[in-house]
C-alpha cells in the first residue's frame, strides 16, 4: 500500500532530485565547490532493492543497485548524499549541495542548481510520457447491421 501522503519535506525532495540527476549535469551547474570537510566517504556500495509479491504483498529481494554515499561538513551545516551509481564526485557535490541548502545561500542555489535540474527532469519525464501516449491503442467498434 502506498504510504499515506504527508507534508512534503523539502529536504527529502532536493535530496531525491540530486540522487537522480546526471552527474555531468550537476557538475556543469556547480563547477566550483565551497570549502568543506569530508565526514564520510565518498564510498561506493550496493543497496538491496525490494519489490512486493504481486506488487502489494510481502517484500522480496529483487536485486541490488550501485549507490555512492558521502557526508560533508560545511561550516555548521552537515550535508548527506546517497546517489545512484558509482560517481564519487556526484556524491560529494550532492552532499555539499545538501549542506548549502541548510545555509543562508539556499535561495540562490535553489535557483541556479535545483530549479534547472527539476525543470530538465520534468521535461524528460513529460517527453517520455508523451511518446508513450502516442502508442496508446484507440479501439473503435464497427457498427454491425443487425443492431439497426
Amino acid at each position: 500500500m502506498p504510504s499515506a501522503q504527508t507534508e512534503p519535506n523539502p529536504r527529502k525532495l532536493w535530496m531525491g532530485l540530486l540522487a537522480r540527476c546526471a552527474p555531468a549535469r550537476l557538475a556543469a551547474l556547480m563547477p566550483d565547490l565551497p570549502p568543506h570537510d569530508l565526514l564520510r566517504g565518498p564510498e561506493i556500495g550496493a543497496v538491496m532493492v525490494q519489490g512486493r509479491v504481486g506488487g502489494t504483498g510481502q517484500p522480496f529481494n529483487l536485486g541490488e543497485m550501485t549507490v555512492t554515499r558521502c557526508s560533508v561538513r560545511l561550516g555548521d551545516a552537515v550535508g548527506h548524499a546517497h546517489v545512484q551509481g558509482r560517481d564519487r564526485a556526484h556524491a560529494i557535490r550532492a552532499a555539499v549541495m545538501d549542506a548549502l541548502m541548510q545555509t543562508e545561500q539556499a535561495a540562490s542555489f535553489e535557483a541556479t542548481v535545483l530549479a534547472p535540474l527539476k525543470a530538465e527532469e520534468s521535461a524528460a519525464r513529460a517527453l517520455r510520457a508523451a511518446k508513450a501516449a502516442a502508442t496508446k491503442v484507440e479501439f473503435f467498434t464497427l457498427v454491425r447491421g443487425e443492431d439497426k
Binding site: A46, Q50, G51, E64, R69, H82
Partner: peptide, 17 residues
C-alpha cells in the same frame, strides 16, 4: 561492494509507464 542498506519495497503502482 559493501551493502549500504536495503530499500523500501518498490511501489510499482506508481510506475511511470
Amino acid at each position: 561492494l559493501p551493502r549500504l542498506g536495503v530499500s523500501l519495497p518498490l511501489e510499482t503502482a506508481e510506475m511511470a509507464v
